[in-house]
């Protein structure tokens, strides 16, 4: 995300010397411009770009939330990089006037976790499965992020949460946060319910107006988790990607997307289509308004096809 000031400087530079503009953008120290939007009593959200991870957005594509409490600031997800985490910590301290008391990581994907490095690891909490996922994939994610987001990632390393989170309510001087340990988007997904405001933070179990990602998905488990989230009486739902809204649109849309792509991919597979053919199949008309629909569908074909080939095709060799 390029700040407004950088954009102005860029525009001025472009007017003066168009060929130098891009170079100046690179030469300038990068800075995230986090814009908190109030979403309830002592609650703010910083919206991620509805985009894929690119150098232009510095990987800042996931939603992040900050809550105020008597015990300190509570941060939900930490963003894609060390710099993002540092900016987030500064913002949380400014909004609440208190140091950070807790950082929750909803799952192990890179756009949500690497900012945790800016916080005391003893304050960073996640279910055991999230920590295991980070142990297994964290370094690979960091490498991939460096290749795409380049200098935005400077100094970023995997830091494991030291607080293993269970189902018990956490009480921050009267502000009670109820963790829900679920799965489906990944093997371990955390949703959080703020009892004071009735806001439900769904992490990447819910996407809104942006196509869900499936690199580590288990669709059956995901649907079960969506049903569980739908059963919680919330006044506002904050998805991992997309706008916060009252009502269950994010949950319904996420479920509809998963149903649609699973049907298309399985049907294509059963009909003998090659994955390169499946990727080009039409998507339902309603997905036209969903950001990155084709992009994520093409990714999902690559996630699910090899699994279908391995599990659904009969053995045909004559190996004794």
């Amino acid at each position: 995300m390029i700040s407004r000031r950088q954009a102005l400087a860029l525009a001025a530079g472009a007017a003066a010397a168009p060929h130098l503009a891009a170079f100046r953008a690179l030469a300038r120290p990068l800075a995230y411009d986090l814009q908190p939007v109030p979403i309830g009593e002592g609650a703010w959200m910083v919206a991620g770009a509805q985009e894929a991870i690119t150098f232009a957005n510095g990987g800042a594509i996931a939603n992040v939330a900050i809550l105020d409490s008597e015990a300190g600031a509570i941060v939900i997800d930490a963003g894609p990089s060390r710099w993002y985490g540092e900016a987030l910590r500064t913002l949380a301290e400014r909004l609440t006037g208190k140091p950070v008391a807790r950082v929750y990581l909803t799952h192990f994907h890179p756009d949500h976790v690497f900012g945790a490095q800016a916080f005391d690891p003893r304050l960073v909490a996640a279910p055991l499965g999230v920590i295991q996922g980070l142990k297994e994939h964290g370094d690979g994610f960091a490498d991939a992020m460096y290749q795409i987001a380049l200098d935005w990632m400077r100094g970023t390393e995997v830091v494991l949460p030291q607080k293993i989170l269970g189902e018990g309510v956490e009480d921050f001087g009267g502000r009670r946060i109820r963790p829900l340990t679920l799965s489906g988007h990944t093997a371990s997904d955390l949703a959080l319910f703020d009892e004071r405001t009735g806001i439900l933070f769904a992490g990447d179990l819910a996407f809104l107006d942006r196509a869900p990602t499936t690199p580590h998905a288990n669709l059956a488990a995901w649907r079960t988790s969506l049903a569980k989230l739908a059963s919680i009486l919330s006044v506002l739902l904050v998805p991992g990607h997309g706008p916060a809204e009252p009502g269950g649109r994010a949950l319904a849309q996420t479920r509809d997307w998963l149903d649609a792509i699973e049907f298309i991919i399985r049907d294509a597979f059963e009909r003998g289509l090659d994955p390169t053919e499946a990727m080009a199949l039409p998507l339902p008309a309603w997905t036209r308004d969903i950001a990155l629909a084709r992009y994520e569908f093409v990714r999902s074909v690559q996630h699910f096809y090899p699994k279908l080939e391995a599990s659904r095709w009969e053995r045909v060799d004559e190996t004794p």
Partner: peptide, 16 residues
């Protein structure tokens, strides 16, 4: 030559 618009796994790139 058909390749995906985004490569998910550089060890398994589907090509037609």
């Amino acid at each position: 030559v058909v390749v995906p618009v985004v490569v998910e796994n550089q060890a398994q790139v589907p090509v037609a």
